[in-house]
Design a protein around this nucleic acid. Structure first.
Lengths: 338, 338
DNA sequence: ATTAGCACTCGACAACAGAGAGTGCTAGCA
DNA sequence: TGCTAGCACTCTCTGTTGTCGAGTGCTAAT
């Protein structure tokens, strides 16, 4: 696979990404500096098809890049290009509106991402696994229910309702909260489990309560991560790939079932960037889509994931740039004001 | 407008609702007990068209009910028919999954509504205006921020971050919380404003803190209502009205901008049922949709709104039944376990 | 090794005919 | 007088046909 093939493949992909129309030899010959005649290019294209980089919808249509081609394309591309000043400002602007609630920030990030790329965006609320607990509070909601509020080192606040034994006064709840904060501050979930085992040993009263608390902590920290925000779901309908209503509906219903979406984002792991192209996605509904994900940080060791879903012929360059910038912006914002 | 016209109009609407195809005289004559020949029915149809109840897409197509016809139809219908046992069970089943968080219940309600009707559902988190406060808690999040938790008589929990002056210890915050709960329990927002005026007069220390608290209460209770959940957005794509991608996109982008949706639901007011048909909606994007809304109660004087959006030819009968049942189910669920 | 030229393929699109559904009108019937 | 049968007419929908153009693969010439 020589230099020239690269050039031609590149040209084909570039063209197809913007036009969504199978691209022919003449087009390539005319456009883009490659100074060869259509015939030459045809030969090369023929080779490229044999190698699996191009598909032909039918004889006498142009060629279309295959998933393999995109894969090659993005592998070659993985340096995030700089983002236009304008777009950068837009991101900063949208995010900087002072909103203390994490949820708000996430929502706004998703919206900005989809507006900037014109694709669909997903942003996951960061995973608590490795977070450290800073404070624990419990307050009465009814006689037998309390709200447990956990503040983590990342400045995140999680609350959950827990059932408590009757007859526990507000004062006691307050004391216990203080005690818990004192004991648990700075610990991760794993360490908390241990600690609880200790505490439990020489505990006489309120065993039930403590059990509830541990339970809630476990649940909240493990499950809490499944929260996710989707932005710009309707954007996909702009693209000719989805002028078929059937396909559009399929796509949209995936977006509505977070159970399907979640493992998708999850499986990207903690890589800085991950790009899944078409069939590389496990979901058959998304076999004609690409998913680009990136991570953002909160503090040192907490990471969140966000991603963009678009047609396989998406503008990877731009998507990566935007995600890169957004990742930094989010990390800054969320880490700074801790 | 005589008896027979009623019958025929009814038959036309019924037919069109299920088929979405312009209905002709022969169809009506054959189907539905109206024992008249096509010719007679044609004459009546001609009259109905003159009266504004029918439209004709073009000569020699069947007739299509106009917005006016639907209006007549639903006015005549307004008694919610009984729901099939099966569907009722399904609603109860979906809701009964124990989920204490109001948010969860709302979300599930929206999902159930859209599944049962195959249209798009909207459910608004209830409006706090007339709620009474039961408890107020404040707990530290950082040195200068606290989380204020308000529990209302409806069992709703709202929290908001407030900025507090430095140097206030947890103990003081706890005492103040208790004091606030004592003073404010059972009051509505209006009454709280008064109370605060009193308290403020002979207050020396902590004026700033109290100001923050009042501020947060105001904001939270006024703005909080704009929260809304959308279910089954992709459902509309099932219907031939939306086989045009352009229209579908328009519709979906309305769903994504809650600013547009909110006044829509809001304007339905506190009527038990409200039906807005096609152009009766203020949003031009929804001029080919109908919106049926209903309310549910939490306790005595708090109401939430929910609604179904579908094509104008939606199955009003069923939608009303489902909404009616859901309203009762939600009211029960949310009022009971207080 | 490259390119010009040519025959061939195949989808897109317009034009067209026929079928079918529906209407309005008129005339006949109870 | 009210209903209906019949008929001519209109208009959409569908399938067919033919043409156009873009694109290919191959061969021969440079």
């Amino acid at each position: 696979m020589d230099e020239r093939k690269f050039l031609i493949l590149q040209a084909i992909i570039d063209d197809y990404i913007t036009t969504a129309v199978p691209v022919g030899s003449r087009t390539i010959s005319r456009k883009s500096g490659v100074g060869f005649s259509p015939a030459t290019i045809r030969n090369e294209m023929s080779d490229l098809e044999e190698l699996g980089y191009l598909d032909q919808p039918h004889t006498s249509a142009g060629r279309v890049p295959s998933a393999k081609a995109y894969r090659w394309y993005v592998d070659q591309l993985l340096s995030a290009g700089p983002l236009s000043k304008e777009d950068g400002d837009r991101i900063s602007g949208h995010l900087s509106m002072r909103s203390q609630q994490l949820e708000q920030v996430i929502r706004r990030a998703a919206q900005t991402l989809s507006e900037l790329t014109n694709y669909t965006s997903l942003v996951m609320v960061p995973q608590m696994q490795s977070m450290r607990i800073m404070r624990v509070h419990m307050v009465h909601v009814t006689e037998t229910m309390a709200l447990m509020i956990v503040v983590t080192n990342a400045g995140m606040i999680k609350d959950s309702l827990i059932r408590i034994p009757e007859g526990i006064s507000g004062d006691i709840l307050y004391k216990i909260s203080n005690m818990l904060t004192e004991q648990l501050a700075g610990l991760t979930l794993d360490e908390i489990r241990q600690k609880f085992a200790e505490i439990f040993k020489d505990l006489r009263e309120n065993r039930k309560l403590f059990a509830s608390v541990l339970d809630a902590l476990e649940n909240r920290m493990a499950e809490g991560e499944s929260e996710m925000v989707v932005g710009g779901g309707a954007n996909l309908l702009h693209y000719p790939e989805y002028s078929d209503v059937e396909k559009a509906r399929n796509f949209l219903s995936v977006l509505e079932s977070k159970e399907k979406l979640y493992p998708l984002l999850r499986s990207a792991g903690t890589l800085e960037f991950s790009i899944r192209i078409g069939p590389e996605n496990d979901l058959p509904e998304l076999s004609e889509c690409s998913l680009v994900t990136a991570t953002y940080r909160i503090g040192e060791d907490t990471r969140g994931t966000m991603g963009i879903i678009g047609p396989t012929r998406m503008n990877y360059q731009r998507v990566i740039s935007v995600l890169d910038f957004m990742g930094k912006a989010l990390s800054d914002l969320l880490t700074k004001d801790k």
